[in-house]
Simulated scan of single mutants.
Amino acid sequence: MFKRLSPLDTTTDPVVTFHFGDQVVTARPGDSLAAALLASGISICRTTPVSNAPRAPYCMMGVCFECLVEVDGNPNVQACQVEVRDGMQVHMQQGARRLSL
């Protein structure tokens, strides 16, 4: 569905490596986390609170909140609003968002 115009393996540009769950993902510096996940074939980043239905990045500009993930232990992060960086630990957000007080 989504693919890069020039795949990572055909360029000498630098890459960023991060983890999504147990999977190692590579991206280009400057990519949003949501774009990097989609380009890597990962389309589900959270589940809904009531039915656990899978959700994926939708608007890619921070309006819809469909791309919420946990980044480095912080829940409720909009993947479309975060730039990838080396060593990030990203996890799928399961169900209801936890609120930090």
Results as ranks from 00 to 15, higher is better:
Cys64Ile: 14
Thr48Trp: 00
Cys59Lys: 07
Thr17Ser: 01
Thr48Phe: 01
Gly21Trp: 00
Val15His: 11
Val84Met: 11
Val25Ala: 00
Val71Ile: 10
Val15Gln: 13
Thr26Lys: 10
Met60Glu: 01
Gln94Phe: 09
Cys80Asp: 14
Leu68Ala: 10
Ala79Glu: 15
Leu68Asn: 06
Arg55Ser: 01
Asp9Ala: 13
Gln78Val: 11
Asp72Arg: 01
Gly41Ile: 03
Leu101Phe: 04
Arg46Lys: 05
Thr12His: 08
Ala36Asp: 00
Gln81Glu: 15
Phe20Tyr: 05
Leu101Ala: 13
Phe20Ile: 03
Thr47Glu: 09
Met61Leu: 07
Cys67Asn: 14
Phe18Leu: 04
Thr48Ile: 01
Ala34Tyr: 03
Met1Phe: 12
Arg28Gly: 01
Arg85Ile: 06
Gln94Gly: 02
Pro7Val: 05
Gln81Ser: 15
Ser32Thr: 14
Cys67Ala: 07
Phe18Ala: 04
Gln93Arg: 02
Gln93Phe: 03
Glu83Cys: 06
Lys3Gly: 08
Gln23Ile: 02
Phe18Cys: 00
Ile44Leu: 05
Arg4Val: 09
Arg46Tyr: 09
Thr17Met: 01
Met60Lys: 01
Pro14Ser: 09
Ala96Gly: 05
Ser32Ile: 03
Gly41Pro: 08
Val24Ser: 07
Glu83Ile: 15
Leu68Gln: 12
Ala56Tyr: 02
Leu33Val: 04
Asn74Met: 12
Leu38Thr: 00
Met1Glu: 10
Ile44Tyr: 07
Gln78Trp: 10
Arg85Cys: 03
Pro54Asp: 12
Leu37Cys: 00
Leu68Ile: 08
Phe18Tyr: 02
Glu83Gly: 06
Gly21Cys: 03
Met1Val: 08
Ser43His: 13
Gly95Asp: 07
Glu70Asn: 12
Leu8Asp: 12
Arg97Asp: 12
Thr11His: 12
Phe65Gln: 11
Gln89His: 10
Ala34Leu: 02
Val15Glu: 11
Arg97Phe: 06
Val77Gln: 14
Ser6Val: 15
Ala53Glu: 10
Ala96Leu: 14
Arg46Pro: 03
